[in-house]
Design a protein around this nucleic acid. Structure first.
Lengths: 125, 125, 125, 125
DNA sequence: GTGGTCTAGACCACC
DNA sequence: GTGGTCTAGACCACC
């Protein structure tokens, strides 16, 4: 048996930005906090923030302008792809976990319905 | 922003046993590995294993016979409750995460269907 | 023949807190010493204190606020139950020990009266 | 706060013999096990047994005949004194503990009656 | 062999 | 400062 480790912080930072972008809380062209600012608020090492920002730069999620700051730089198209990817991962994991508990897809399906309506009311667009 | 920590090892051990019991791989009366055995195989400290075993003892999931070993001790009833609880947690988390990505329940519903049939074939009982 | 072992320290710690609560010396909402503080005063290992505190947490005798401390959290009702339980255990043990010495209940009864009045004066409410 | 240690084994041995004598299970003139025998059965160090036997010898509870064994040697009178002493200690401790739980003597008295009749039937001579 | 208790101490998040 | 997790290892009773 192997144990799950904590997801690396720099990846958690990236995930957090991804979610904000997907939710529309962070739009193309907007400035994200400076690395120093972020590190202080989150009380983590600036190097960790730098790594997250660098990877987002590589993925073209953001653009860094030397001496000016870092700006969101993601196309609507890429955003949609990202959104679908993240949903797909959630779905896949969910289905597998339910099966591991011995629920067949039919049951999972019914339970999802119950959870959605029971949870906290409707959530229609 | 707060970061996710690793789930404590002793809890991961408990979760693992829970899953094994739910799947019927570990039945009432069966002996689980000794604390030392487990610690050596998993290469973790015996104290960590002991904490997991002690908590399972407190939850009445297992029964410990000094000098003899630790035995599964969970009623069919409790097992069913456990199974439902774990499923409920999965469902709840899944629904919330999908909403956080901006999918409404209808969409989530449809995507689940797609995932189930597309994933790896049917999974009917 | 088996010999009596020392009652584990962590249980003695719990018993001590129970008694303080029952006597009203420690009331709901009050803070108990930090784990380190207790360990230093009693000159025992912090882990031993932590085990006692954790078990009290599990029993809902106290509530732990991370980074803040540990607070008494027991209902008046539970306190009364605890008090009766502890008295019952004392009584049961006392009766059995007296019988083991060959005193019948009548004799025990009379001796108790003598002890109470003779011991250190009255103790009426 | 100080913690209770285990009562020394040699004292536990002595207590055990005292109780046996008081109950009449061990009478004057009877032979008790050899030190070696006792140590093996109880799986304790022979030195510990020797200390217990030596102290009983000093108290004139037993008499040791070199090369022959150890024999109970206690007068009926001393036995009665011993019995009363042990009862007195039990009583004293019981009364104090009940008071510490906040029960007044009247209450203790009534609870004792309930315990005696409720416990396991009558125990009249 | 088995589990139970305890010490010593590291490292961490949260306040 | 607070509590939480984990390692390393001693020593013990019980089988």
């Amino acid at each position: 048996m192997d144990f799950d480790l904590a997801r690396p912080i720099y990846q958690q930072i990236i995930d957090d930005f991804k979610k904000q972008m997907i939710r529309g809380e962070l739009r193309k062209g907007e400035r994200i906090p400076s690395q120093r600012e972020y590190a202080e608020k989150a009380r983590i090492n600036p190097n960790t923030v730098q790594r997250a920002y660098r990877e987002m730069e590589n993925m073209r999620m953001v653009e860094t302008l030397r001496g000016q700051g870092t700006y969101v730089n993601i196309s609507e198209e890429d955003l949609q792809m990202l959104r679908k990817e993240m949903a797909r991962a959630l779905l896949r994991n969910f289905v597998l976990e339910m099966r591991a508990l011995g629920f067949d897809d039919e049951e999972t399906f019914i339970m999802l319905q119950a959870e959605q309506t029971g949870g906290e009311g409707d959530n229609k667009k």
